[in-house]
Nucleic acid binder design. Structure first.
Lengths: 222, 222
DNA sequence: CGCAATTTTGACGTAGTTCAACACGTGTGG
DNA sequence: CCACACGTGTTGAACTACGTCAAAATTGCG
């Protein structure tokens, strides 16, 4: 079994509280689905370590990557009001999640209001994350600014729970990133190369380091 | 005072419950900010009627429209865990909102767990809305597919609380839409014209009607 | 080590955005 | 009534960013 990368920082986060009251950690191996589209939605998951990829099946039966989830973030949170999951969630590399069973949560929640407050905070944070993610990709006309904004978003999300705000291990393949951003693998590769030549990023396989935050921001918001 | 358009459908929605327990409706006039970036965050708002535009101030001091909010949706929900609002929220046309005061909510919430459950459902729905909005605009390489997906998303969001799923009154100006989607007003105009010529949409000023859903979907997901 | 999968680079053509300039309708105020 | 500003829609011409095809380079895994 490979080691799991990028664990959640120690500390009394909402997730660790949920975890201690409700459930045990689950280990999910590479490429294993956490859940699939249309499956009955009976649990919310909080990522503790590793990375998940969310996908949709589009009309022509080609997969569309609609997002990635990192430690501290929720997956399947619309299970609270939906009967079925709306997308697929698949582990990228080996991961660890905290499974929040909805039945259990409902029962415990009635007795422990602080558990509900906890969930409210988690949902609020997830909301903020989604809004930020959205505003980082919307209204970007060039692939360069889109990729720059995407990278900045990734680093910001990782720095909350990760020791370094400038280093990032992204277990995702190039195709998945390109798919997610809506361009071809070649284009992605080219821009990565360009960013390296300019000294903005340092990339070795799946390890990425930010070298020039200011310039990257300038490209993103241009 | 102008009439307020597109009110929330009658019925026991989560928002009407919040409203009856916590607060009174607030009327917000056209172009009036609900709150601004950096202001202390002391309340969540739920839109009851009308439309709000969310904006960010980018580096070069030009406004970027990061989203629109319609009846049944939340604004400022990250106030739960943030000290300050992260963006501007401005009324487009005359609107009506339900203000959920956080202090009040905290006090009432301790006594009434059902109020907390209510909020949890609201947040979960908002989460789902954000994720759907995101996946509708991400990975669109042509302006046509982006606009088609944006329109479909608008209609879907409005049909939940609106009588007609095919008609939409969008009080927002062309520039705001173009800004939000990241292209020029000309491009927007061209595509709107094209969609009308093809018989996909009928547009009269700010009234939009879907004529051919299937073809629109095909363009969006191509 | 060797094969397969993934990633990078190059050259080229084109679709589609952008820029610029104008036309039209409407509201406003002198 | 006309002059003006403003929002919106239209059109043409130029450019460039991205997709496509093809091949080389690198990585990963048994």
């Amino acid at each position: 079994m490979q080691p799991i990368c990028r664990p959640l920082k120690a500390g009394k986060t909402e997730i660790s509280i949920m975890d201690s009251y409700l459930s045990k950690h689950n280990i999910v191996s590479n490429a294993t689905p956490l859940f699939l589209h249309q499956e009955p939605a009976d649990a919310i998951y909080a990522v503790c370590a590793g990375c998940f990829k969310l996908t949709e099946q589009s009309a022509e039966n080609n997969e569309k990557v609609i997002g990635f989830r990192f430690p501290g973030e929720l997956i399947g949170e619309d299970a609270i009001h939906n009967q079925h999951y709306q997308y697929n969630a698949v582990a990228v590399g080996h991961t660890s999640v905290c499974k929040i069973d909805l039945k259990e949560l409902n029962e415990c929640g009635k007795l422990m209001p602080e558990l509900q407050l906890n969930l409210i905070t988690l949902l609020s944070k997830q909301n903020a994350m989604l809004r930020e993610e959205f505003s980082s990709v919307v209204a970007k006309h060039t692939a360069e600014s889109l990729l720059a904004a995407f990278m900045l978003n990734l680093f910001k999300r990782n720095s909350r729970y990760q020791e370094s705000g400038t280093k990032l291990y992204l277990p995702v393949g190039r195709d998945a990133i390109a798919n997610h951003l809506g361009f071809r693998r070649e284009t992605l590769s080219r821009i990565f190369s360009k960013f390296q030549q300019k000294g903005l990023l340092s990339i070795q396989a799946k390890n990425i380091e930010i070298l020039d935050l200011a310039k990257l921001e300038h490209i993103a918001y241009s």
